[in-house]
Nucleic acid binder design. Sequence first.
DNA 1: CGGTAGATTGACTATAGTCAACACGAGTGG
DNA 2: CCACTCGTGTTGACTATAGTCAATCTACCG
Lengths: 234, 234
Amino acid sequence: MKFDKTIACDYCIRYNNGLFSHLTQEEQQKLNLEKQTKKLTKGTLLYNECSRLVGFYCIQSGILKIYKTGNEGKEQIIRFAKKGDIIGYRSILSGEPACTSAKVLEDAVVCFIPKNTLFDLIKSNPSFSLALIQLICAELGEANSFITEIAQKTVRERLAETLIILKRTFGVNNEGMLNISLTREEYANIIGTATESVIRLLAEFKQEKYIEISGRKIKILNENALKKIGNIFN
Amino acid sequence: MKFDKTIACDYCIRYNNGLFSHLTQEEQQKLNLEKQTKKLTKGTLLYNECSRLVGFYCIQSGILKIYKTGNEGKEQIIRFAKKGDIIGYRSILSGEPACTSAKVLEDAVVCFIPKNTLFDLIKSNPSFSLALIQLICAELGEANSFITEIAQKTVRERLAETLIILKRTFGVNNEGMLNISLTREEYANIIGTATESVIRLLAEFKQEKYIEISGRKIKILNENALKKIGNIFN
DNA sequence: CGGTAGATTGACTATAGTCAACACGAGTGG
DNA sequence: CCACTCGTGTTGACTATAGTCAATCTACCG
């Protein structure tokens, strides 16, 4: 991991879900001094379950997967973190070890913000606290939806839904390919199924011309069909 | 619904996850004036998805189920709320309609606390904010675990786990029966399965002498066996 | 030029969902 | 008081869905 301080917080302040836009000039400068910028290459494990974090991370670029390890050692991907997201805050706020792991999927630049900086901000800046609370509530709302979907939808439905959500979250490149590339196993670990099931269903979707596949790159050809399969109404 | 103000907040202050213990005398008095106490009988729907809440609720006694309705109209129970829990805060903090419904399972007494009271506290009392953040983070942590379990464990494993969790959460009465009584369908809606599957598995557990059943009352006879089945290690 | 990780396919099996019929008790209205 | 209904619980039979296992293939990397 390399550390540098070349990128000022101003950049993130504009993007991070508005979280840091509630800081005063003074607080912003303090943050700028106390944070550490890290460059992380693909495959790096930023932290894992049981890590005792001493700060949280703010993603400036790149993609990480946030996952939990089930009792058979199987990974369950809980969510992804991309530009503007913050991760690891749950652990330091509750004072417990992390309950998830974070691994880099696409080379990333993240800022490490020490625990005390966060606590100081909460203590001194109510607007910041409120924004943070709202951000956590949003994450909680998504987790609740995820529970319902994983409990009630079939694997086929969840796969279709996942493709739609990935498109919404990461967008597509100029060839229409999803801007995130996952292994079949990672798809399985989002959906909660076996790798082989993902392979078979992707092949089906391809067969029906809902998607186009080229290695790990996927292009959605018929979004409406996938929405219908996944029971997505918006 | 009946309203009264007979019960002072002091009572809850001591129990509510320490949340309200961070209030000053003055704030406690203000809260006491602004809250409304409601008595809710079994079966009452406190709010449902799409409700625009104007405050949140603090449970003084009784049990409510918090659930989401999936696209086939099937209920997914996300969690239960009992003495000391707060519900409905996510909706007012994010300014969105509720994403879950809350229905009374056992006659309850709840306090309604208006939105502005909550916002005022967040703005003026950083200790309260921090405690609130920690409370939400705890809920988020549980949601993440729930996702992993529902995605990876079999129905049998989840049922065993659910029984253990219900015992931990609600305890047992003097006959050893779980202090919560659910229909078979409600069990199915926690676990994410069909009612018939719950019935068959409960019969199995009974057969193996892990539990004793008398109508909706369940007694755990062999906790270790259930823990083993549910892969619970603590 | 192996070696390794990931992708694919087929065959088989287990798990759990669906459907239909029936049981049972608590209320309800004639 | 009795038939009736309704909600819930139960059971059996069948089916579909998805998991497991094993073999093979492919691409890329050192």
